[in-house]
Write a protein that binds this DNA or RNA. Structure first.
Ligand SMILES: [Mn+2]
Ligand SMILES: [Mn+2]
Ligand SMILES: [Zn+2]
Ligand SMILES: [Zn+2]
Lengths: 140, 140
DNA sequence: GTCTAATTGAAATTAAATCTCAATTTCAGT
DNA sequence: ACTGAAATTGAGATTTAATTTCAATTAGAC
């Protein structure tokens, strides 16, 4: 369970599991898959839980470091995150018109990237592929 | 020549070719391939040319729209751009340690993306693939 | 329970980018 | 070359996302 994973991660780094960090992790699990930090902060305030904006941002960084959350997008102004617990890696298509986010995964594509890294003597550790265009609905 | 292309683009939109826009385009051609707006602004100031920060940002948007410049990524906070005139599309590997940017291109990878778009009824218009990790030098 | 290092939150700060609007410039029409 | 309408500019204000500061609080090892 992600709680234990996070607690473990914190322990390894000599950090403490606080009620604020717990609140952020809790909300990360119930928020829509793709979210931004301000959204998350607003929802924490609405729910009974409490955590300051500073703690939300600070905890989000820790969650990314622990692998429970990933930074998704590099197109808009602010960052978009998604929680990854129980979900496998995938990439995204984003509709320029309606903003819909479509997730996809291709083994071939992943392998091709491994090959490219190898031939460049590069040790790839993560990647982001974002395809922008028009989704099915907006096409017309 | 990119000058004519930009002038043409502006004409189509009922916009004017000003000395400030010319200065930005001029500097975009002599700056390192990958640059950020503040860098560009600083260099314009150093050279004899003139353009305010506002104009630099405004012109950069127009250059992106015209296809002469592309947004590459967001390193930390700000955007990174590159000029594309006379260069073909490619993607990037970025070293987490030294920041080196390695360009690569793979026909197979591009085709695979086309297939993926097709099978999702998505009209892909652009994409960004960024692979992060450790470069040859930093590996060790 | 004690103690100490980690953590918190409100507010200040930073940084990138955008906006405002009076003054200036471009350029199509003549 | 002249004119005038519309586009553009720049200094500084504003917005936005995120980070920093630091006194007060808290977690958790002992
Ligand atoms: Mn996703
Ligand atoms: Mn490049
Ligand atoms: Zn759409
Ligand atoms: Zn490196």
């Amino acid at each position: 369970m992600q709680n234990k994973i996070f607690q473990n991660f914190l322990g390894q780094k000599g950090l403490k599991m606080t009620r604020e960090r717990f609140a952020v992790l809790e909300e990360v699990s119930s928020v829509p898959v793709h979210f931004d930090p301000e959204q998350l902060y607003a929802r924490i305030r609405e729910s009974g839980l409490k955590a300051s904006r500073a703690s939300v941002y600070r905890t989000l960084s820790l969650l990314v470091e622990s692998g429970l959350v990933e930074k998704v997008s590099r197109s808009g102004r602010g960052n978009i995150y998604e929680h990854t617990y129980g979900r496998r890696h995938h990439d995204h298509m984003i509709c320029d018109i309606c903003g819909e986010i479509i997730e996809f995964y291709s083994e071939d594509l992943e392998n091709l990237q491994l090959d490219i890294c190898t031939s460049n003597n590069f040790k790839g550790m993560s990647h982001t592929l974002e395809i922008r265009g028009h989704c099915e609905n907006c096409r017309r």
